[in-house]
Design a protein around this nucleic acid. Structure first.
Lengths: 258, 258
DNA sequence: TCGAATTTGTGCGTATGTATC
DNA sequence: GGATACATACGCACAAATTCG
């Protein structure tokens, strides 16, 4: 015998169905919680649990004092992540934005630090033998039409770039260019990239920086550029999932070169 | 004046810090809710809200009757999604699993249905002029070592495959092969693929099928195979985010064709 | 095997704060 | 200011799963 799902879940299922079917249109106001308590003849705790559930699914949004509303699905922008990358010269990000008729910009902050064990692992660095910094860390906030769309923290081995004109990613003659172009300047040929994609709730600082609600979902990408087998840059990227989705694509090749 | 954050949030922040710092080690049991109520001198509702918050962040997991535990970060399996694909012959999924030393298997269920507007859009189908089915829908559950790892629902235009030996993806001489191989049988050359990646909480049925908690996060992929500009297959894929992460990669090419 | 104790999950009712209209 | 509506918090009862003697 299947036991019935709990009350709040059954009510959430009903409301979810009404939203998906369009009976509750985008931006429409839901019945007030007091009203729902009467309709379903349950206590306020149950209705609040329902609201939490649907809110965590991104279906509704409550505004204190005003009411609860069906969230309009802003047709999510797509951020292409392969295929076009990297075209020659200039920032890959700007190119993506231009291709979508948007205006891109970014802010950043660079400094040399000692890498965390995880970053050390991703860059293939040995254990540090001193307190000296061993990576250049650059934190980016990318904006599309003045709306923050993506956070990124990039790490480059200091041993590679120290003293070079590209040591600071966003300063000097090669500022704002992609990793591939900048590495080429110091004779390193980037041969391939890899991106590990996952998702999680945003941290407090991320939520603030991206102007999304606390705990809203972000897609996370660990991107690493390689020169043959050697990692030359790695980055942690966070993208709010309610406004953007990411697209990968490639040609189908006969058999695989491994 | 900054108003203080609500009680449950401040307590959640404290516990989160203890988990991140390692003071509460992975797999360690948290104090019981009753104990926490005493420690912080708050009501049970507050503690329950704290638990909900941390659980939704994937930091803890409660087991009814047993207690609440710090979730161990299970080094997540990586599902590679390009690079190797498609190698020749056989199921791409099985190849991925074999490459990781795991045993893959799957269950499926095929039937012809009328496509939803969204699927119609993705496959470039015209408005239906009757009630007749126009796509072959196949629902898959993929298992790795007998643990469900991925749900997929695949759609192929019925106009393409009707009457062909590959009409049923999992029946006939070409059962279990990839889309690329099967399409080749009827003279269609798949030239490229595209995957739109996003994330959301699992639906009730998905959670059940994947054996994850209700509302746990899944990565979603809308995959489409193209023969030149024509879509020949599209699929909705769901992968539980706490056990698996996905990896894309490609060689860096000089300039881009496009 | 069974039952008692423990622990989390669900649900009820109430009170108060705070933002919006 | 007053009414409305959601957010937070207190406290209680019972259900369901687990643990352990």
């Amino acid at each position: 015998m299947e036991p019935l799902p709990p009350l709040f879940r059954r009510i959430a299922d009903e409301l979810r169905a009404k939203i998906r079917s369009g009976e509750l249109a985008p931006n429409a106001q839901l019945p007030t919680q007091a009203e729902l308590m009467r309709q379903y003849d349950v206590s306020d705790g149950v209705i609040k649990a329902v609201m939490r559930t649907l809110a965590s699914e991104g279906l509704i949004q409550a505004r204190r004092g005003a009411g609860t509303f069906v969230k309009a699905r802003p047709t999510r922008q797509r951020l292409p992540r392969s295929w076009w990358r990297p075209a020659r010269g200039g920032s890959p990000f700007l190119q993506d934005m231009a291709a979508h008729g948007m205006h891109g910009s970014w802010a950043f902050d660079s400094e040399t630090v000692q890498a965390s064990p995880e970053i050390r692992d991703r860059l293939g660095l040995d254990e540090p033998d001193s307190e000296l910094p061993d990576v250049m860390r650059t934190a980016y906030t990318f904006m599309a039409d003045d709306e923050p769309v993506q956070l990124a923290t990039s790490y480059e081995p200091w041993a590679l770039t120290k003293g070079e004109p590209i040591a600071y990613p966003e300063a000097g003659p090669h500022a704002g260019q992609g990793v591939v172009e900048r590495m080429a300047v110091i004779g390193i040929t980037v041969t391939h990239w890899s991106e590990v994609v996952s998702a999680r709730p945003a941290s407090t600082v991320e939520a603030q920086a991206l102007k999304i609600g606390a705990g809203a979902l972000v897609l996370t990408i660990e991107r690493t550029y390689f020169a043959e087998t050697r990692p030359v840059e790695t980055a942690d990227i966070a993208i709010p999932v309610d406004r953007y989705e990411i697209v990968y694509g490639a040609p189908v090749r006969e058999a695989s070169g491994e």
